[in-house]
C-alpha cells in the first residue's frame, strides 16, 4: 500500500537526514487485508525513526502531544489507532512539543 508520510513540528529530526516527506510502501500484516494506523505506527517505528523513538511513540500510540492527520483530517475523527488506511493516503504527524 502506497502511503505518503509527512513529519513536522520537529519530528523530522528523529528521522534520517531530517527528511520531512516520505513515500512509503507498507504491506498489511500477513492474514489481514488492511493496514491500520496501529500497524503504520509499528512500521514507522521500525523503519523510519532513527533516534529517540520515545519522542514519537508512547505505549502503543503516538506520544501525547503529537498530532496525527489522515488526508488532512484529525485522526481522532477517524478512529485513532483503529483507523484503516487506504491506497495513496497521506498521513501527517506534527509534534506540538517543540519551540514556541
Amino acid at each position: 500500500m502506497h502511503l505518503t508520510l509527512e513529519f513536522g513540528g520537529g519530528l523530522e529530526l528523529l528521522l534520517k537526514d531530517s527528511v520531512k516527506l516520505h513515500h512509503v510502501d507498507v504491506k498489511p500484516k500477513s492474514g489481514e487485508d488492511n493496514v491500520t494506523m496501529r500497524d503504520l505506527l509499528t512500521w514507522v517505528k521500525g523503519n523510519l525513526i532513527k533516534e529517540r523513538p520515545e519522542m514519537f511513540i508512547k505505549g502503543d500510540s503516538v506520544r501525547p502531544g503529537v498530532l496525527v492527520l489522515i488526508n488532512d483530517c484529525d485522526w481522532e475523527l477517524c478512529g485513532n489507532l483503529d483507523a484503516e488506511l487506504e491506497e495513496k493516503d497521506v498521513v501527517v504527524f506534527i509534534s506540538t512539543l517543540h519551540g514556541g
Binding site: 481522532e76 477517524c78 485513532n80 483503529d82 484503516e84 487506504e86
Partner: peptide
C-alpha cells in the same frame, strides 16, 4: 472516552 470504543465508522 473518545472515538475508539464507540465507533467503527468507515473513514470514507
Amino acid at each position: 472516552e473518545g472515538v475508539e470504543a464507540s465507533e467503527r465508522v468507515k473513514r470514507t
